[in-house]
């Protein structure tokens, strides 16, 4: 039989191989983006072309080194990347790194809220749909799920704004906090985290906490529902398929009660594919964040990405894309590892 040691070695090797795969993935993405963006020309002309006389433009291009062969620039960019130097943005001339941390926290906050919404709505409803397979409840829930991912987030956002902000006047139209509160958090705190809900609690003013939460409700639900629909469908199909797998049949034949089968036997194995999908959903969430942030003027990476793109600030865009590439690849890595840890086939084998 296999010894415990062989099993853990196999696992370690799997982790190592999977970890090594991160590097080419990030390299490929960064390279693709670099060349795709440079097809249109150098960043200086793109950002300032037409606003400066050609001679001045040429001087600035030379100063920045954009007149050198593309491959030289590429190698330089890559070596700078390794040392964590992403350059300065062209439009507002701030280090890309600090831009990323400023707006990244806003996106992180939104993504966490959206994931919470997605889990709390998608998982239980998916389970209910699976328990009531092919009954009216199931039908209603499935149609709800389809609507969730058929509606573009920005349309859902506009509708939500129309109803809850304009017609009913319950919730703010846009932004992350009332301007006064935003300034208060920035000025009165020694270490503002940039995650507004944390900062609001640090400030200790409950009206600010309320204000921040009110601003977060619509964007979180709009972005969260998109993912909730996917979770619902996935939980449903996975629970249904595990319910009819041989080991559940075996338990059923031993007289295990049907509700226990659902809660214990079929539930946990059904979650494994979901963990993988959560990883994939991070990419969907980030793309959705671009649209949601634009709809609600939530000043995060997505909102800024579209602003920088319009200004043709390719240095900033590249910085954001590199960060997204790293987030996506690392999440996929973590998710694969978790899936391998949880999967009984791995555990029992070891």
């Amino acid at each position: 039989m296999k010894s415990k040691k062989a099993g853990s070695n196999g696992f370690a090797r799997f982790v190592a191989v999977r970890f090594l795969l991160i590097i080419p993935t990030i390299l490929i993405l960064v390279s693709v983006v670099f060349f795709v963006m440079r097809v249109t020309g150098d960043p200086i002309t793109a950002a300032l072309g037409g606003r400066l006389p050609p001679e001045q433009l040429a001087v600035r291009i030379r100063e920045a080194g954009y007149d050198r062969p593309l491959i030289v620039q590429y190698l330089e960019y890559m070596s700078n990347l390794l040392t964590g130097n992403l350059g300065n943005t062209l439009t507002d001339n701030q280090p890309v790194m600090s831009m990323l941390t400023t707006y990244g926290t806003a996106t992180l906050e939104l993504a966490i809220y959206a994931l919470i919404v997605a889990f709390t709505i998608g998982m239980p409803l998916g389970r209910i749909a699976a328990y009531n397979r092919d009954k009216p409840k199931d039908a209603v829930l499935r149609i709800f799920a389809i609507f969730c991912y058929s509606t573009p987030v920005f349309f859902m956002g506009l509708l939500a704004k129309l109803v809850f902000s304009v017609q009913l006047g319950w919730l703010p139209v846009s932004g992350r906090a009332t301007v006064g509160n935003e300034i208060a958090m920035l000025n009165n705190l020694n270490t503002p985290t940039g995650i507004f809900i944390v900062d609001a609690f640090q400030l200790g003013d409950m009206s600010v906490v309320g204000d921040v939460l009110m601003h977060a409700i619509l964007p979180s639900f709009v972005l969260g529902l998109l993912t909730a629909g996917t979770f619902l469908r996935l939980v449903r199909t996975n629970v249904i398929s595990t319910l009819y797998s041989p080991y559940v049949d075996a338990a059923r034949s031993r007289g295990v009660h049907e509700s226990r089968l659902l809660k214990k036997h079929a539930w946990k194995p059904a979650l494994i594919p979901i963990i993988t999908v959560v990883g994939m959903q991070i990419a969907v969430l980030l793309a959705g964040a671009v649209l949601t942030e634009t709809t609600f003027e939530w000043k995060g990476l997505g909102f800024m990405l579209s602003q920088y793109l319009k200004a043709r600030d390719f240095v900033a865009v590249q910085g954001i894309v590199v960060l997204i590439a790293i987030i996506v690849t690392v999440t996929n890595f973590i998710v694969d590892i978790i899936a391998a840890i949880i999967d009984p086939r791995v555990r029992y084998d070891g």
Binding site: L29, V32, V317, I324, T329
Partner: peptide, 19 residues
Amino acid sequence: ADAIYSFPSLLLAILMAIA
């Protein structure tokens, strides 16, 4: 293919559209 697939599709489409 895996690298491209893992990247948020809308962002890729935006970059391509601009290029």
